[in-house]
Computed example of a mutant assay.
Amino acid sequence: MSDDSADRGPVVEKPGEGVRAVDRALDILLAFRAGDRQLSASELLRRIDLSRPTLYRLLRTLELRGFIVASGEPQRFQLGPSVAHLAHVWTSGLDLAELSQPMMRRLWEQTGETVALLVHHGRERVCVAEMPSPQPLSFKRGVGHSESVIQGASGRAILAFVKDAASYLDGKVPPNQQPAYLEGLARIREAGYAISRDELIKGAVAMAVPFRAAGGKVMGSLVVYGPSARLDDARVQQIVALLLDASRELSAKAGATTD
């Protein structure tokens, strides 16, 4: 059988077809939401306006490039390693200290207390940005200061959302105290914030919330701290509410998605 494809000439793509295909492929990827481990074709079709043949054709292309992984019978689909690669590239290119400045400035103005941004690094959390309180009685640690991630509100606000948090406790927390420590992390995870009093600095109160980047990974914590003389329980709860709002904004700017 002769091949007459050369006689027919190159296939000419109709204007707009390539852009439309890319747009539809992106719709498929963006149809996945936080908490979606796998989706069936029917579930995807309920979220995007495509015919079933077009959906399968685009899924196959995305699978070949590592953006989608298909498994099972009937097939179910999940995001693939190429998405993780892009998330890593996006996150590594972020200047979190600069990105957080508007939120930190607003917290600083609203609270009058020291505001800091800490990032998770190995078994520690490191201060990458700090705005000291202008008040005479105040506390500050300084950019570059690091502590074990198991210590303080700023550390536990991170550790509560880390996979296998128990592994961080070996050699740091006595075995008989670890169950209570892990229960405390569970309460932080449920509440979404951590508070400490007189822990790392005598007379200081710290309030911390986690912030996330692309993929939902907790990258660090946003913290406000000041003297207990100014921070009674009512004021602490007011500041926690402000921190939670700032954390949501910072997480969105860092690429995290919420649904």
Rank of each mutant, 00 (worst) to 15 (best):
V119Q: 00
R76H: 13
T91Y: 00
V115P: 05
S146H: 10
A116I: 09
G72K: 07
Q135G: 06
V69F: 00
C127I: 15
W108K: 03
Q135N: 12
R141H: 09
G142V: 08
Q135M: 13
Q151H: 07
R123N: 11
L107V: 03
H85M: 14
P134K: 06
H88D: 11
P132W: 01
Q75P: 11
H145W: 15
E109C: 04
I150T: 15
M104N: 10
P81K: 06
V83H: 02
L117R: 01
K140L: 07
H88A: 06
V115Q: 06
E98H: 06
P134D: 06
H88I: 08
V119L: 09
T91C: 03
V128S: 01
T91W: 00
L117F: 05
P136T: 00
H121L: 05
Q135T: 11
E73H: 13
T114N: 13
I150R: 13
P81L: 11
E109W: 08
V119M: 04
S71T: 14
G80T: 03
V83D: 04
F139D: 11
E109H: 11
D95H: 11
S146A: 14
R125E: 15
G144Y: 04
V143I: 15
P132K: 01
L118R: 12
E124N: 03
G144Q: 02
A84D: 14
L96P: 13
G80K: 05
W108R: 08
V119W: 02
S82I: 04
S71G: 13
M131L: 12
A129P: 07
A116Y: 07
P132N: 01
E124R: 12
S133W: 01
V119G: 02
E98D: 08
V69S: 00
H145Y: 15
F139C: 15
Q78F: 07
L107P: 00
A129S: 14
E109D: 13
R76C: 06
G80A: 02
P102W: 08
L118K: 12
Q135F: 05
S82N: 05
F139T: 12
H120S: 15
G112F: 11
S100R: 00
G93L: 12
S71M: 09
V119T: 04
V128I: 05
A129Y: 07
L79D: 07
